[in-house]
């Protein structure tokens, strides 16, 4: 079991390394540089700046230096905003995105899992049809349609929440709901099919033959196995929440990471882009690790089967 965890950790580090390398070289392949933008900088100034940033050195030296810095935990200064550290920019906007993402994830799981369980247990009932139609709507109507519609209905017409902005807890409601919807829909569908699969297993029949009440059968015998596919989905779900949050932050004008992520490539802000990619990579790797750990906890067979 520890072997499994260690190998996952190593794999996670490998993923981050690959990601960082790809990013580093792709970003430097792009035409233009951080200093060739609207505001023309005198040539000698640019040369000084490039030297200061180490951009005058051969690319493999830059790469080595960057890796060394990252290993030390230094993400360097932003190339566009010379007086600010990347870690400072991220430190300012990340908590906003994080709060949004965590809320959305919580809503997605809190709504998706019970909906899926109920749909599976009451198969072919109105509850099943209602939640599955709801799930399809969640999957097929993109967030950037639902977001504005929610904003109009609850923000403009009903006036319950602010349409855009950030500052008080109420501002979190609409964006988090919008962001959670597609993920909740996927989770509900997965929970349903996972539970149906488990409920058709022989050991559920054994449990019934033991005289266990139906409710206990579902909570104690079926749920664990039924959640295995859902747990495996945590990693992708988290990635989906991240990409969704870029859209949501744009719609609701939330000062999170989205703006930096969207602007950094165009600005050729190498260090900021690398920093963001590294941060998101780490988060997704962590989410995948969490999903692996949860799977080990849920599924005793995985503890021994995956050891080799």
């Amino acid at each position: 079991m520890f072997k499994v965890i260690i190998s996952r950790l190593l794999q996670g580090l490998l993923v981050l390394f690959v990601l960082l390398t790809i990013t580093f070289f792709i970003v430097r392949q792009l035409p233009g540089s951080p200093y060739q933008q609207e505001r023309k900088i005198p040539e000698h100034v640019e040369r000084v700046l490039r030297e200061k940033m180490g951009l005058d050195k051969p690319i493999y030296v830059q790469y080595g230096n960057y890796l060394a810095n990252v290993a030390r935990g230094d993400l360097l200064a932003s190339m566009k905003r010379e007086n600010r550290q990347v870690s400072e920019i991220i430190g300012q906007s990340f908590p906003v995105s994080f709060a949004l993402g965590v809320c959305a994830m919580a809503i997605a799981i809190g709504v998706g899992v019970p909906a899926g369980v109920i749909a599976a247990v009451k198969r072919n009932s109105w509850a099943d049809y209602a939640s599955m139609i709801g799930a399809l709507v969640g999957i097929c109507i993109p967030t950037f349609v639902i977001g504005p519609v929610l904003a109009i209905v609850f923000g403009v017409h009903l006036g319950w929440f602010r349409v855009a902005g950030w500052g008080n807890p109420g501002d979190l409601v609409l964006p988090a709901l919008t962001l959670a919807l597609p993920t909740a829909a996927y989770i509900a569908r997965m929970t349903r099919s996972g539970m149906l699969e488990i409920l058709s297993q022989d050991f559920i029949r054994t449990a019934r033959a033991k005289g266990i009440p139906e409710r206990t059968i579902i909570t104690r015998h079926a749920l664990r196995g039924g959640l295995v596919p859902v747990v495996a989905f945590i990693g992708p779900a988290f990635a989906a929440i991240i990409s969704g949050s870029f859209v949501i932050e744009t719609i609701f004008q939330i000062p999170g990471m989205g703006q930096h992520f969207v602007n950094a490539p165009g600005d050729r802000d190498y260090t900021l882009l690398q920093g963001i990619v590294l941060l998101y990579g780490t988060l997704i790797v962590a989410a995948n690790l969490l999903s692996d750990l949860l799977n080990l906890w849920l599924n005793p067979r995985a503890r021994t089967a995956d050891g080799n």
Partner: peptide
Amino acid sequence: DVLYALPFLVLVILFSLWVNT
């Protein structure tokens, strides 16, 4: 597996910027 664990959106954006050149 390794590629799968990378953030999809991020990669697509980087990749398309690169091809764009």
